[in-house]
Deep mutational scan, measured.
Amino acid sequence: MLDDRARMEAAKKEKVEQILAEFQLQEEDLKKVMRRMQKEMDRGLRLETHEEASVKMLPTYVRSTPEGSEVGDFLSLDLGGTNFRVMLVKVGEGEEGQWSVKTKHQMYSIPEDAMTGTAEMLFDYISECISDFLDKHQMKHKKLPLGFTFSFPVRHEDIDKGILLNWTKGFKASGAEGNNVVGLLRDAIKRRGDFEMDVVAMVNDTVATMISCYYEDHQCEVGMIVGTGCNACYMEEMQNVELVEGDEGRMCVNTEWGAFGDSGELDEFLLEYDRLVDESSANPGQQLYEKLIGGKYMGELVRLVLLRLVDENLLFHGEASEQLRTRGAFETRFVSQVESDTGDRKQIYNILSTLGLRPSTTDCDIVRRACESVSTRAAHMCSAGLAGVINRMRESRSEDVMRITVGVDGSVYKLHPSFKERFHASVRRLTPSCEITFIESEEGSGRGAALVSAVACKKACMLGQ
């Protein structure tokens, strides 16, 4: 009897593995994704193909990295998701002549009506938060230079001027797309009239992360975010950046690689679950690469896999709870928690219980395998993109072996128990001629924006502006 049951459990697990095998990517698959990513990057950089390229390769006008001589107080704003952060950054000489960066910050959550109302409502709310922060720190009387981390696709015309191309991540505030974001912020500050600010720089969160990590390690020339969304930036040779005049030196390019796949480059790798996630998203047909990796989508992918296993009578005796059938019910943090389970399955059992399920031991094991399959594919897909960037940098610099540091931020990278190990191992397999160091950014977005502002202020002083 026991043997029969054991055989049935083994057969069930084997069927589960057959279904989950769809998520496995072979090294040849990853090399294919990497080569296609490089081709799209090239198209994004070139003037004649930029418009139709899915990977936009947006110039950021960040050319210099901090040298350690900029000092002063800077205000930093960070808008990239449902939370908005205001930070005071003091850049100065530390002990023994070292450079020191001290920060104080406060988080504000953005109400739904500000995210989806008008641009005026959104930026009025942001300036209200700045006003509140300055009151708390008794700094209303000071006109501070301000660095703005704005983590949406922007076409820069200068370091302090950028046109919002399109909202992502659930934002829909009308009247912002096609307009200068810094102008919208300046107008809102003017409307309030109770404080003055000098907006000197606007950067993407990947750029802010790279600059913040450069402060720790001067070989950091790539910034990457794996959180709600997924994106990367890197220092490109100016001669390859056709959208900006000049051939000397390097400029940081914001790849906006989340949109890779929007022209069909990933079609052969998309599964039924991916198509369902895409169809029910706020932007169907867009940001397809990001939807395979980002935390906004990972939990939902797992939920759809679990429903398939229920329908195949391989999980929960073929019956799903009402909660499990509800879109968004299986949160991405559950994926991390399930994979963090120590082996007694308590954590998995508790999560499934909150979803109205009474799982068996085998159910718990199957749910864990589903989570591992989805998150491992995410790590491997992400590795193909980064390997594409790094191999490109090595080739354009004609280096036999390139040493490089990548600064990384984002909740999936930082909080998932195995993502970074799987990701690092896969990147290294795909970049055999590179020695890569990964560092995690601390308060990256805010500190990085302030350091970019410090560079901009120093330049302005040198130019006598």
Rank of each mutant, 00 (worst) to 15 (best):
S174I: 09
V338C: 01
V277R: 06
L2S: 11
Q106Y: 06
D198Y: 01
R325D: 06
E395V: 05
G410T: 13
E442L: 12
C129W: 03
M462E: 15
T168W: 13
F171P: 12
A320L: 14
A119W: 08
V401Y: 05
D78K: 06
K420H: 09
T116E: 10
E196T: 07
G448A: 14
I126H: 03
T332C: 13
G183F: 09
E120G: 13
V338D: 00
K346A: 05
D311V: 05
D311N: 05
R250F: 12
F84V: 10
M121S: 13
V154K: 09
C213E: 01
V374S: 01
L292W: 14
A114S: 13
K291S: 11
G92P: 01
V389L: 12
P59L: 01
L47R: 14
E331A: 14
Y349C: 02
G249K: 05
S263Q: 03
E322N: 09
V302I: 03
Q323S: 12
H424I: 09
L430G: 03
G407T: 06
K90R: 03
L314A: 14
M107R: 07
E395G: 03
P417A: 02
K414M: 12
F438R: 01
D113R: 05
A6Y: 14
L306D: 00
A119P: 06
Y108L: 03
L352P: 01
M107K: 10
S109N: 10
S280I: 14
E221I: 01
C457T: 13
V222I: 02
D311C: 10
K104S: 13
S174C: 03
R155E: 12
E421N: 13
G385V: 13
V181W: 09
F195T: 09
A259C: 07
K39G: 04
M87I: 05
N166R: 12
G223D: 00
Q323F: 08
E128I: 11
Q347F: 08
F74G: 00
F123H: 03
S375A: 06
C220L: 02
D4G: 12
L75W: 01
T206S: 05
Y297G: 14
L292A: 12
V101F: 03
W99S: 08
Y234S: 01
M41G: 02
Y349T: 06
T228F: 04
C434F: 10
S383E: 02
S69W: 05
R63Q: 00
